[in-house]
């Protein structure tokens, strides 16, 4: 169905962290277990799931913060572990940019917006007139090209800072953006406009976006595909309309049912939800034996063995 080859493929990716405390025994955390995903140019893949399920670890491994314990990360078909020359590594680091939840974290408070963007522009687009390029990029992310360059990060709102982060990705001509909860610290109104911006970057610049989020409603808006993670494994994936609209795996159904509904009051005496959550979790922990097709491109995990505790 898709003409282009994936820009990024995760192939059986696993990551185990060894945690050595000063007191107590050493433990191992299996943050990712055999994760396979693919991403296409001009499209967005939403990564949703349990908190602590490994979503950020996937993002951090893509940008090279951690090495895989097993499995491969392929960028345009090439294993990134085999990018040994400095030039190749540089090219990859430029092509793949990360945008974080906290719009402040990636900006240096001591430097103006001009400084942040001009550096990136001169390094990655030396051929163009820097002032014109700066203006064009600010316009592209819907920031005022006249007043913004001289401002410092603290003089911008959270939403505006997040736009600067996207502008920086454009300045280095990124082709894949890993956005780790880019809107969760923003207001609903601003959130919509940042989602609109990502939508446009995807459509107009052909950027691929890995969109890590807790907000399924926004995944529905932005992402063509959605993958649901639980305890380091992908338990359901496929077209967003079908994964979110008609979830099949127990964990996804639970997630979908827990989206706050103002008409439903929570009470302390309702043990039903917690009991159901516990049952679903227990059933979703065992290794995924295989992914079963439930609809076109929509697959759910079948777990190795279900322990009835």
């Amino acid at each position: 169905m898709l003409s282009e080859t994936p820009i990024l493929q995760l192939d059986g990716l696993s990551k185990t962290f060894n945690v050595r405390p000063i007191f107590g025994r050493a433990t191992q955390v299996e943050a990712l277990r055999n994760v396979s995903l693919s991403l296409h140019p001009g499209r967005a893949l939403a990564l949703v799931g349990e908190s602590g399920s490994g979503k950020s670890t996937v993002g951090r491994m893509i940008v090279g913060h951690h090495r895989p314990t097993a499995g491969r990360i392929l960028f345009e078909g090439r294993d990134i572990a085999e990018l040994t020359s400095r030039a190749d590594q540089m090219r990859y680091r430029q092509a793949v940019q990360m945008v974080f939840q906290d719009p402040f974290s990636a900006l240096n408070p001591a430097h103006t917006i001009r400084h942040h963007l001009a550096r990136a522009l001169s390094l990655h687009q030396p051929e163009v007139d820097p002032e014109a390029a700066l203006r064009a990029i600010l316009e592209d992310v819907e920031l005022d090209p006249i007043s913004t360059p001289a401002k410092f990060p603290h003089e911008l709102s959270g939403g505006q800072r997040q736009r600067v982060n996207f502008a920086r990705a454009l300045a280095v001509k990124a082709r894949l953006i890993v956005a780790d909860e880019p809107t969760s610290m923003l207001d609903v109104s601003i959130r919509k406009s940042i989602l609109g911006l990502m939508q446009r970057l995807k459509a107009e610049h052909g950027l691929a976006i890995l969109y890590i989020t807790h907000d399924i409603a926004t995944a529905e808006y932005l992402a063509e595909e959605t993958a649901v993670m639980f305890r380091g494994q992908v338990v359901e994936q496929g077209p967003t309309a079908s994964v979110v609209g008609a979830p099949q795996h127990g964990y996804t159904r639970l997630l979908r049912a827990a989206v706050p509904d103002p008409a439903l009051r929570l009470t302390g005496s309702d043990a039903g939800f917690a009991a159901e959550a516990q049952r679903v979790r227990a059933a979703s922990v065992p290794p995924v034996a295989q992914m079963r097709d439930v609809a076109l491109g929509h697959r759910i995990a079948e777990h190795a063995e279900v322990t009835h505790a």
């Binding site: 349990e50 908190s51 997630l255 302390g268």
Partner: peptide, 22 residues
């Protein structure tokens, strides 16, 4: 609970409500 998934968010808030009752 802004950094939590909605399942854990709901469990924690129900737990807060339960503890509040108790």
């Amino acid at each position: 609970t802004t950094a939590l998934d909605v399942v854990v968010q709901r469990e924690i808030l129900q737990e807060v409500l339960r503890l509040k009752d108790k």
